[in-house]
Computed example of a mutant assay.
Amino acid sequence: MTNQQSLPGDPEPGHDPRRQGEDLAALLERLLARVPERTQKELAAEAGIPYPTLNAWVNRTRGTSRIDPEKLRAMVEVFRHWGVRTTPKEFFEAVGRPVPGPSEDEREARLLKLYRQLPEARQRALLKDAEAMVQVSRIG
Rank of each mutant, 00 (worst) to 15 (best):
A45R: 08
E12R: 14
D68V: 12
T53Q: 10
P119G: 05
P50E: 09
M1R: 15
Q40K: 08
R34T: 03
Q4G: 11
Q135D: 11
R34P: 01
A25H: 00
D10Q: 10
P52S: 01
E77W: 02
R107H: 13
V76Y: 03
I139D: 11
G48H: 06
L127V: 12
Q117C: 10
P100E: 04
S6I: 07
A45C: 01
A74D: 07
S103T: 12
W57D: 00
A130S: 12
A125Y: 13
G48R: 04
R66C: 06
R19M: 05
R19G: 00
A56G: 09
E22I: 03
F91N: 03
L28M: 06
Y51T: 05
L112K: 12
E108C: 15
V134F: 04
L72Q: 08
Q20W: 08
R19L: 14
Y115C: 02
W57I: 00
K71Q: 13
L127A: 11
E90P: 11
E90A: 12
L27H: 04
E37M: 06
D16E: 01
V84M: 13
V136T: 14
R60T: 04
E12M: 14
A56M: 04
F92D: 11
L27D: 01
A130N: 08
E77Y: 05
V76E: 10
A94R: 10
P102C: 00
V99Q: 11
A47G: 07
P36W: 04
E131A: 12
V95P: 04
W82K: 05
T39G: 04
Q40V: 05
D10H: 12
S6W: 05
A44L: 04
P50C: 02
G63C: 01
P102N: 09
A132K: 14
E106C: 03
P13A: 01
V58I: 13
L28H: 07
V136Q: 15
L7C: 04
V95K: 07
R30W: 07
A47C: 02
L43S: 06
E46G: 01
R97P: 05
L28G: 05
R19T: 09
R116I: 10
P88H: 11
Q4Y: 12
E108W: 13
V99R: 13
L7Y: 13
R85H: 14
G9K: 12
